[in-house]
Measured scan of single mutants.
Amino acid sequence: MQFKLIINGKTLKGEITIEAVDAAEAEKFFKQYANDNGIDGEWTYDDATKTFTVTE
């Protein structure tokens, strides 16, 4: 399945899409990606669109 991350950071904005087995695997990848890029904010997930959003 495809999952999307929308980044609304103070210094980094954009979107990335990955293939993952389930939402838990996608969330783990996205949170590591955000951590690696210094993004720390509020997370939301929309199951209907398979979209995670992080907002700083």
Rank of each mutant, 00 (worst) to 15 (best):
M1F: 08
G41K: 01
K10R: 09
K31P: 00
T17W: 07
Y33H: 09
G41V: 01
D47P: 10
D22H: 05
D47E: 15
E19Q: 04
E25V: 04
K31Q: 10
V54N: 01
K28T: 11
A20D: 08
I39T: 04
T55A: 14
K28V: 04
W43D: 00
T55R: 15
F3Q: 00
E15V: 14
K50E: 03
K4H: 04
L12F: 12
F29W: 14
E27G: 13
I39E: 02
T11P: 09
I16M: 09
I6C: 06
T44G: 06
K4W: 10
I16K: 14
A34D: 00
A20T: 13
D22A: 04
V21E: 05
A23H: 15
G41L: 03
F52R: 00
D47R: 05
Q32V: 15
G9V: 11
T44L: 10
Q2C: 02
Y33R: 03
K4M: 03
E56P: 14
K10G: 06
D47K: 09
A48N: 13
G41H: 01
D22T: 04
D46Y: 12
D46F: 04
T17C: 02
N37V: 05
I6Y: 14
T17R: 08
Y45N: 01
V54F: 06
T49F: 09
Q32F: 12
T49N: 06
V21L: 15
N8V: 06
V21I: 14
D46K: 07
M1L: 09
A48V: 11
K31Y: 10
A34P: 00
I7T: 08
K10A: 09
E56N: 10
F52W: 11
I6K: 08
D46R: 05
D47H: 09
E19C: 06
T55V: 05
K50A: 07
A26G: 10
I6W: 08
F3C: 01
K28Q: 03
A23Q: 13
E56F: 12
A20R: 03
L5H: 00
T44V: 12
G14L: 06
F30H: 01
A23G: 15
E15C: 03
T55N: 11
E42Y: 15
T55Y: 07
A26V: 05
I7R: 02
L5F: 14
E15M: 05
T49P: 03
E42V: 11
